[in-house]
Design a protein around this nucleic acid. Sequence first.
DNA 1: ACGACTTTGTGCGTCGGTTCACAAAGGGAT
DNA 2: ATCCCTTTGTGAACCGACGCACAAAGTCGT
Lengths: 229, 229
Amino acid sequence: MMRQSQPRDRGIPEATVARLPLYLRALNGMAERGIATVSSEDLATAAGVNSAKLRKDLSHLGSYGTRGVGYDVEYLVYQISRELGLTQDWAVAIVGVGNLGRALANYGGFVSRGFRVAALLDADPEIVGDDIAGLNVEHIDELEAVIKRRGVSIVVLATPAAAAQELCDRVVATGVTSILNFAPVVLSVPDTVDVRKVDLSIELQILAFHEQRKADRMSGGPLMAVDSQ
Amino acid sequence: MMRQSQPRDRGIPEATVARLPLYLRALNGMAERGIATVSSEDLATAAGVNSAKLRKDLSHLGSYGTRGVGYDVEYLVYQISRELGLTQDWAVAIVGVGNLGRALANYGGFVSRGFRVAALLDADPEIVGDDIAGLNVEHIDELEAVIKRRGVSIVVLATPAAAAQELCDRVVATGVTSILNFAPVVLSVPDTVDVRKVDLSIELQILAFHEQRKADRMSGGPLMAVDSQ
DNA sequence: ACGACTTTGTGCGTCGGTTCACAAAGGGAT
DNA sequence: ATCCCTTTGTGAACCGACGCACAAAGTCGT
């Protein structure tokens, strides 16, 4: 009654944004299998979350469900895609074409969802000029020109740690404000720039911590039987 | 006075565990540069966090600082390493030797921190038998035998989505309870098993969301001129 | 047309995490 | 030995997120 022509609120919680891609993936799977309608319960199960959480998440985008029925799969796919900005296509540049950069360039998951690898850049003259995933590897000196020319708006850094900050600075200077960083360093950027970090060794270290705790638990505490819970 | 021979509490917050590797990395860098002592302020800056948060995090491990001085770098490195379980070495198996699996096998960040890639496994007969990063790629049929024989306790799944759940089940059946999953699926496992997930396309989607919002802001809201900031 | 049933959307209590701000603790100078 | 200065460790307020549980809203069968 109150909001009318303003279907979605500005101000979606960060935790919700992080889960939308999960819902989207589950929904795409269902669409492929010809499922037309899905309940919050079923979708939540498919995405591995609590159903109340799912409903609350979706409620932030608008009221797209039908009580007593559920959500229309195709419609919801469209709404989430639009919210995430996947209805347009994003030109991505991969900086650093080592093992990881190559893996990323060949990774199918990007193209399928509105992302297009538009450039590969590296400093190594051995690699520059190579064709990888149908793309020519360009020299890092061309960074600024390539970003401008191809309309790149998201940059993936897959360089050695030592080179990351300097390249990051150059990327930021071109006006790019979204960076996905695989280098194991803390990048410093103006707070107008979003940096997301993926760190393989940190993930393993977290697993090791829990693994060790499980082992400790098995062998019993050294002093006393604190909470056997 | 109360806790005495029990330096560290059981029950470190998950958020703290996730940051310890960050501190460890910063500290290692300082140790290499010959820095003997560091204040919470400086270490926090190097790790990119708030200094109060850093102090509270470290306080969960014990009282390892000296008021008026700071923390002894080497000592803190040792304490964090021990807490994370990095003083022992962990045998890791990589399942799926595609582009990503290869990149992971060659990734230096593992070996340097207590992790050792002990096995590479794949289903593709083209790849089985190849030498990658000094390791022989074994056939996936050997999964159970290899895990047992090499004492693997952490498994990295870098397979296509379609194969991930089945392989995950086989891995879990061998008794492994720590899995790092790169396949874009929600794995279902008993809750005794820890799964951490790294999903490249989700990270990009989150960036796209924020990038779109920034763009919306620039072009002005459709209804009114909200903040021209 | 109506009632029983299903499922959404959300108010509210709870919990974990973050940050401020300060007392306690130690070092170093005089 | 005492005082001042620095820095830790933490109490307490705040904030966002989670999940229960239920009223509102809509469907379907009769």
